[in-house]
Structure formats: C-alpha cells, structure tokens
Design a protein around this nucleic acid. Structure first.
Lengths: 156, 156
DNA sequence: AGACGATATATGACACGTCATGCAATTGGC
DNA sequence: GCCAATTGCATGACGTGTCATATATCGTCT
C-alpha cells in the first residue's frame, strides 16, 4: 500500500530507492560534516570550498569569476559569501590594477591558518563518514554516476 | 601539481573524485529539478516532500512529528515551512482533540490539486535527468551506497 | 571624443534552514 | 492531587542562496 505509489507518477522501486537515497542522504551527510567543521574550526560548509580554491592557488590571486567557476557557484552567491568571509577576516578583496572591474580575492593570514587546521580534521571526517565505509568499486561507481549526471545536465 | 593536494590532508584520487562528485553534482541536480518544479507548479523543492507525505496519507491526518520523521526533517524546519505553506493555502494545521499540543496537518483542496499536477511533471523530470541516464546496475549501486552511508551516520 | 554593448561585480529583497529558546500541555512519581 | 520533568510545537535571530537588478568599467565602432 505504501509501496504502491510512493511518489505518484511512476518511478519503479529501484529508481525510487536510488533517487530518494541520493537526495535524502546526501544532505544528511553534508549537514553532519558541516557541523563537525563548524565545531572544530568555526568554518561553515560554504567557507570550505572557497578556502580550498584560494589555498591551492596562492599567487597570482584569483579573480572572483575564476573562483566561481572553480567551485561551481553563481557569481552572486560568491559575492555575498565573500562579503561575509571578508567581514570575518578570512579573505580580502582588492581591485585589479589594470581592469578596475575585477576583484582579486586572497586569503588573509588568518584565513590560511584557519584553513590549514580545518583541512586535516575535515579530510579525516570525509574519510570516516564516507570514503572508508565504501569499497573501491563503490567509489568508482559513484564517481562515474555523478559524472554521467553532470554531463547530461550540462548538455541538456 | 594540482593533483598533488587537491584537498589537502589526503583523500586518494578516487575517493576525491567520488566525494566531490557527490557533493558538487547532487546540489546541481537538485537545483535543476527545483527550478523546473517551481516553473511549472509554483512549488519549491521543499514543498514537494511535504506534499508527497500528506498525499500518501490521506486520513487520519498526520501530526507534525510524524510528518517530520517521514521526510527526515527537524521539527523546527518543518514548523517554519508549514507556516509558509499554510500562508500559501497549501496545507492547514489544526489542534488535536485530546492532546492540545499536537498539530494535525492536512492538505487543502488546492494543495492536493497542485500536488497532483506537479507530481506528473516532476516524476518525469526525475526520470529524464536521473533515472534514464543510469543503468540498473548503477541505480542499484547508488542505492546501496546511500543506504550504507545512512546506516553509518545513524550508528555513529 | 562619444555612444553602445559587453563584462565584472555588487546589492536588495526575499525564501530557506539552523540554532537556541520559549511556552503550553501532558505525564509520572510521590 | 501536586510538582517536576518531558513532550510537541512555535518563534526570533541569524547565516545562507537565488533572482532580478544596479553600477561601474572596458572595448569598440564611428
């Protein structure tokens, strides 16, 4: 009865299991890791990818657009978030020498230090709650599935 | 060089591919489907699971706590969201006869009708952008992976 | 030089989710 | 029957994401 039309309009049971699993569990996992990150570094889940990208880059500084592309965010979201991160002293924005429109984004020393501390803990958490509970075959399958979906989304 | 420490602290390349795929692509897929849903039903991605649960149930009405459990939300989130949905005329809340603390939640006729229209489109979109691009083996692997992760989260 | 379209980013309004807290109704021990 | 603890839900404050729009700068064509 409950299994009859769990989501009316008809995905078959396997499709439904996979779909619901994906959209229900992924946020749970995210939330769990975000809380750990916040608890032991004071960083939000959104801060993290920004810091990763900036940390990998070093010099020359990243412009806002490049940063957005790297982490797959919309410009507007990044602008808002950089404003918040700037007010917390994690990053700084400065104007580009020759093109006054572009904003160059850099880590502050505090940002760099905070990220370094966070990265160890966070990577460990990803291992503990994600990587280590799956086999190589499962990781491979998952990676492939995500790439397939992304390609299809980009194409469509 | 870029591949050296893509996320410092050390996930191996396969782990990283799977992890980044999961947390980057899932939100993209969500966002895409949410926009479709909003465009052709005026429903947000958050409205949908609430409506699914209420629609499947019929009578007797669901109490807020049961509803939250069914869709895996925290009470507070549900309370906020029901307030918004109520103001849009999709659901109604009423007090339980014998226990005056509990809120019984029901679909309005408008909610029911809106959901029915939305469900067809949305299921089709899930098929198009998710189920149909994957093989049965991939769906099975994905479902299993998500269940494994969830079990581990619940245990830990 | 001036006008025009394109480019790079910022901003305001609003929906959403979380956390901490509030409060009323109920239950369990005495 | 009374009081403390618990339960069920609501609320306010705040950080976040999206959409539509604004603003400033740049390149180019004339």
């Amino acid at each position: 009865m409950v299994d009859d039309l769990p989501e009316p309009g008809g995905l078959d049971p396997l499709e439904l299991r996979a779909w619901r699993g994906l959209i229900e569990v992924t946020p749970l996992l995210q939330r769990h890791l975000d809380r750990l990150l916040m608890a032991d570094s004071g960083l939000s889940g959104s801060d993290y990818p920004v810091l990763v990208a900036l940390h990998e880059r070093g010099e020359p500084a990243l412009r806002s657009t490049q940063l957005a592309d790297l982490i797959g965010w919309e410009q507007s979201r990044l602008s808002h978030h950089l404003a918040r991160m700037e007010s917390r002293g994690l990053v700084v924005r400065s104007r580009h020498r020759s093109d006054n429109r572009v904003a160059e984004v850099r880590l502050t020393e505090h940002g760099r230090a905070t990220f370094r501390r966070a990265a160890k803990q966070h990577s460990q958490a990803v291992r503990t709650h994600f990587a280590e509970v799956l086999s190589s075959a499962e990781l491979e399958a998952l990676a492939t599935v995500m790439e397939t979906i992304k390609n299809h989304l980009d194409t469509a």
